[in-house]
């Protein structure tokens, strides 16, 4: 699928359906600190460029300064991941549905092997933002999300590099995917599946009542917006 989840999100988003947080029923009724997101609010199923999480991604993925150090690796990553720079925010909306495949370039397998070797080399320079630019880091995420072994190594490197060097929304989405593969529950609510009747379902999730706190920290849309964007069935 060349049209990535971003495009899908935008397409669905403009349907402008309104959803109300299911999490509200789970909550005790006592309000959290005013500094925390309120998952009880009604959320419009629309992605707006003025949304805080979109603006945050727009800033992170801004490539106007051209401030990365390894152009050749970046070019190879973009070709392997089937990406063209610059990317338009939101780049990562935190909706990954099983079976909806991204279209990679013909060099994807070879570059996956190269990244595996890089990850296994102690002290090697991992392709982070300052090395391959924002689009290059998203290419790393896409390649890591199609290979469990690379995913595990990449997640460790991305977490180690920190939010200035690795896009937090990609890190969160990759962690969710890997956790489910390890038999654990996802943390952010980014992973969906299509059931036998063809309906989109959220996969098993841990502590959904604090999902918005985690998602805000990672620069993902509010939980209920993510649910809506995924097109889940009620």
């Amino acid at each position: 699928m060349r049209a990535t989840s971003v495009h899908r999100a935008l397409a669905i988003g403009f349907l402008s359906c309104m959803v109300t947080s299911a999490a509200s029923a789970q909550r005790s009724g006592a309000s959290k600190s005013a500094t925390r997101p309120d998952s009880r609010r009604t959320v419009a199923c629309t992605v707006n460029s003025s949304d805080a999480w979109v603006k945050r991604q727009a800033v992170w993925f801004d490539e106007s300064k051209h401030d990365w150090s390894n152009d050749s690796l970046r070019t190879a990553l973009l070709a392997a991941a089937g990406l063209q720079a610059p990317l338009k925010a939101p780049v990562q909306n935190g909706v990954r549905v099983d079976g909806q495949a991204h279209t990679f370039g013909p060099t994807a397998d070879a570059l996956t092997q190269d990244l595996m070797k890089l990850a296994a080399t102690r002290g090697s320079t991992w392709p982070t933002r300052s090395v391959v630019g924002p689009t290059g880091t998203h290419a790393v995420y896409l390649l890591a999300s199609r290979d469990t072994a690379l995913g595990r190594a990449a997640l460790h490197r991305m977490m180690e590099a920190g939010p200035d060097e690795s896009p937090a929304a990609d890190v969160a989405t990759l962690e969710d995917q890997l956790r489910l593969g390890w038999g654990r529950k996802q943390l952010y609510g980014t992973q969906f599946e299509i059931d036998a009747s063809g309906k989109v379902r959220l996969k098993a999730m841990e502590d959904s009542s604090h999902a918005d706190l985690r998602r805000e920290g990672a620069g993902l849309p509010p939980f209920q917006l993510g649910i809506c964007l995924a097109g889940t069935s009620k």
């Binding site: 006592a30 309000s31 959290k32 600190s33 500094t35 925390r36 200035d164």
Partner: peptide
């Protein structure tokens, strides 16, 4: 910050605003 969890006040470290 002090935060409210259920019917209790708790001490919350809010990593969302962490800056290196």
């Amino acid at each position: 910050v002090i935060s409210r969890e259920g019917n209790r006040n708790v001490l919350f470290i809010d990593g969302r605003v962490w800056k290196r």
